[in-house]
Design a protein around this nucleic acid. Structure first.
Lengths: 348, 348
DNA sequence: CTGTTAGCGCTTTCAG
DNA sequence: CTGAAAGCGCTAACAG
C-alpha cells in the first residue's frame, strides 16, 4: 500500500560529493540557480538524478529558514462535519485559492474537542493560523494565541492580538429579522448551537449573554432587535437550537415548533440549509409560505434561489480568502460585506 | 490583523537555563514527563510560563525526528472545486477522521495545474501522500513517487510503488449499466472529463484507450460491456462529457442529448450530482422517468434516495479513511466495497 | 533521575 | 562564481 523508504534518504551533501562540488554549489543549484555556472548546475542535477535525490529536505529547510510555507486551519470540534457543511467548504476553498497563489500548503489541524487539542496546535509546523468560528471559551483560541504567530479568527470570538474576519452579524440579523417578522404575531428562530456541547433544545427568549458562540449570539441579538422593533416581546420568542448545519436538523426543529400549542407564523433560520428543512416541515404541516409562515435563511447558498428564500447574502469564500491574506501579512481586513436578498418566502 | 512575533521566539535552551536545569531535562519535561522529577518538571514549566514558551519548535522537532506528523493530500488541478464536490468532501472527511485519531495534520497541497506543481510537492513537509484521482499522465504522480514516501492513489491511476484504494469501477459500471440499459434501444452516458483539459463534448462510442482518467475509463468500459450485453453497439452510444461534477453540468449535457435527432431512452450518469441534472432536464423536456427515459447515478449520495435514483453505492468517506490508514502503515487495503441500489429511475 | 555529546540537513553569512 | 564555517532548535544515545 505504500513505498517505505527502502533506499535511505539521499542528502544534499551526498549529491554535492557525487557531483564533485561543494555543498553550497549544490544548494544554490536548487535555490538560486542563476548564481551557479551552467556547468556546475548540470553536474549537480546529473548527480541528483543519478542518486534519486528529490530536492532539499523540507524539514531541514524549514528549520533553517524559520518558515514552513503552510497555513494552519483550526476547524473546531466538528472536524468531520466541516467538510460536509457547504459554507465551511466554501470558506476552505477561499483559503485554498490564496494558498495556491502563494505556493503555501494548507494544514488542517485535527481538533477533536479532547484535552489534547492544544497540543495539536503547538506541534503544527505552520507559519500562521486561521481559526474557524468557535466559542468564547474554546481553549484552542488560547493555544493559538500562545504560539505568537500571525492568526485570524473567522466570525468570532474577537480576541486581543488576533485578527478577526467577519460580517456584522448583529446588523445583518436585524435586517433579515425585519423581513422575516414583518406582520408576524408569533416569531420564532431556528438557531445554530449556543454552546460547544451542541445540545438541541427549545428555549423561550434566551439570555443572549449566555450564548458562547459569538456569531450565534450576535445573530440572536439582531433578531431580538427586530422582534422588539415589531412591538413584540423577546421572551415570547421560541428559539429552536439545532445541533448542526443540516436541512434535517432544520426540519426537525421546525416540525417541533409547528406542532406546539402556539405555532409560529414566522421563522428566521441561521442558514439556508436549516431554512430548507424549515420549508420542508412547513410543507409537511400544510402551511403556506409566506401566507401562514414567513421563512428566512442565511448565506444565499445556491439552493436559496431555487427555494425563493429571503436570506442574508455573504460570501464565505471571500471571507476565507480574506483570512488567508490577512495572515500572510497583507492588509488588515475590513468588515466583510453582506446584503439582504428578498425573495418569495417573506411577506412583502 | 495579525500578531507578528514582536517578542523573539523563546527556545528550549533558554527555558532550561532559566529553570536552572539542563536542556535535556527541559526536553524530557515535554516529551517524557515521567522521566523527570516532579520538582524539576515544575521548575521547567514555571520557567516556560514565565518566558512565554509555547513548547518545542515543531520544525526543529521534525528535522530531528525525521517525521512531520502530517499527511499530504494532493487534490488535482481543480483545487477550488474539490471542496464543492460533495464526494471529494466526504473523502477528505474520511482522511480527517483518521488524522484526528492519530494526531496527524492533514496538509492540502495547492496544485494548480501549472508547471510548479511538482515543486510544491517536493517542498511539502509531510510523512506520506494521498493522491486524489487523476490522469495517467499527471506529472504530479511522478513527483509524489520521487519523494520515496508512503503514498496511495485514490481511484487511479495504478502506479508501481504506490498503493491504490478504489472500487472495481469496471464491474460496478457494468452492473449499473445493466440496470440503466435494460430494455433500452438508445443508451447514452453522461460522463466525467476524459482528459485533464476537461473539455466538454459529445462523442459517439469513444475509444476508451484514449481516456486518461482511469476511473472514467473503467466506468466507460463497464458501460460498454453492459451495452454490448444488451445486444447494442457501442459506436452508437453517445457520451456527453461534462467539465465537472455538478448538477448544472448534468442538466446541460442531458438537455443536449434529449434535443438531438435520436434522443436516448436511457442515460447512465457518472455521479448522482450529474444524474440530478439529468432528471431535471428530463422533466423540462417532458420525458417520463423511467417510462421514456431510464436514469442511473453513482455514489448513493444523500440526494439519491430523495430522487429515487438507481445508483452505485460506495462510501468515499470510508475510502478516504482507507487511504489514510494505508499510508500510515497499517494493513494493505483490499478493493473497496460497492453495491447496486435499485430505485425508481430504472425499468424493473 | 539528570546531564553531556553529537548531529538531523540545510542555508546564511562571509571570504575567496 | 564557488566554498568553509557556523548553527537553526531540538532529541537519540549514552553515560553518570
Amino acid at each position: 500500500m505504500a513505498d517505505p523508504d527502502s533506499s535511505k534518504r539521499v542528502t544534499l551533501t551526498q549529491v554535492a560529493r557525487a557531483a564533485g562540488v561543494s555543498v553550497m554549489t549544490a544548494s544554490y543549484t536548487y535555490n538560486q540557480p542563476s548564481r551557479v555556472s551552467d556547468e556546475a548546475r548540470a553536474k549537480v542535477l546529473a548527480a541528483a538524478t543519478e542518486l534519486g535525490y528529490a530536492g532539499p529536505d523540507p524539514r531541514a529547510r524549514s528549520l533553517r529558514r524559520g518558515t514552513s510555507r503552510a497555513l494552519g486551519v483550526v476547524l473546531g470540534e466538528h472536524l468531520s462535519y466541516a467538510f460536509e457543511d457547504p459554507q465551511a467548504a466554501s470558506f476552505l476553498a477561499g483559503i485554498a485559492d490564496v494558498c495556491a497563489e502563494h505556493g503555501y500548503g494548507m494544514t488542517i489541524l485535527p481538533i477533536t474537542g479532547a484535552v489534547d487539542d492544544a497540543a495539536r496546535i503547538r506541534t503544527a509546523a505552520v507559519d500562521a493560523f486561521i481559526v474557524w468560528t468557535t466559542t468564547d471559551d474554546d481553549p484552542v483560541v488560547a493555544a493559538v494565541r500562545a504560539m505568537k504567530l500571525p492568526a485570524v479568527v473567522h466570525g468570532g470570538p474577537a480576541v486581543p492580538g488576533l485578527g478577526l474576519v467577519s460580517i456584522d452579524n448583529r446588523a445583518a440579523a436585524r435586517a433579515v429579522g425585519d423581513a422575516a417578522f414583518a406582520g408576524a404575531k408569533r416569531p420564532a428562530v431556528v438557531s445554530f448551537p449556543l454552546t460547544r456541547d451542541r445540545e438541541r433544545g427549545l428555549i423561550s427568549g434566551p439570555d443572549t449573554t449566555r450564548v458562547l458562540f459569538p456569531v450565534t449570539r450576535h445573530r440572536l441579538e439582531g433578531y431580538r432587535q427586530a422582534v422588539e422593533a415589531a412591538g413584540l416581546a423577546w421572551k415570547d420568542v421560541t428559539v429552536a437550537v439545532c445541533r448542526r448545519n443540516d436541512p434535517s436538523e432544520g426540519e426537525r426543529a421546525a416540525a417541533m415548533l409547528l406542532a406546539g400549542p402556539e405555532p409560529p407564523d414566522a421563522i428566521a433560520a441561521m442558514s439556508d440549509q436549516l431554512a430548507a428543512g424549515v420549508l420542508q416541515a412547513a410543507h409537511t404541516a400544510h402551511r403556506s409560505v409566506p401566507g401562514d409562515l414567513a421563512v428566512t435563511g442565511w448565506d444565499d447558498a445556491p439552493n436559496a434561489a431555487d427555494l425563493g428564500l429571503t436570506t442574508v447574502a455573504q460570501s464565505l469564500r471571500t471571507q476565507g480568502s480574506a483570512c488567508a491574506q490577512a495572515v500572510l501579512g497583507q492588509e488588515a481586513p475590513p468588515d466583510s460585506p453582506w446584503s439582504i436578498v428578498r425573495r418569495r418566502t417573506t411577506r412583502p
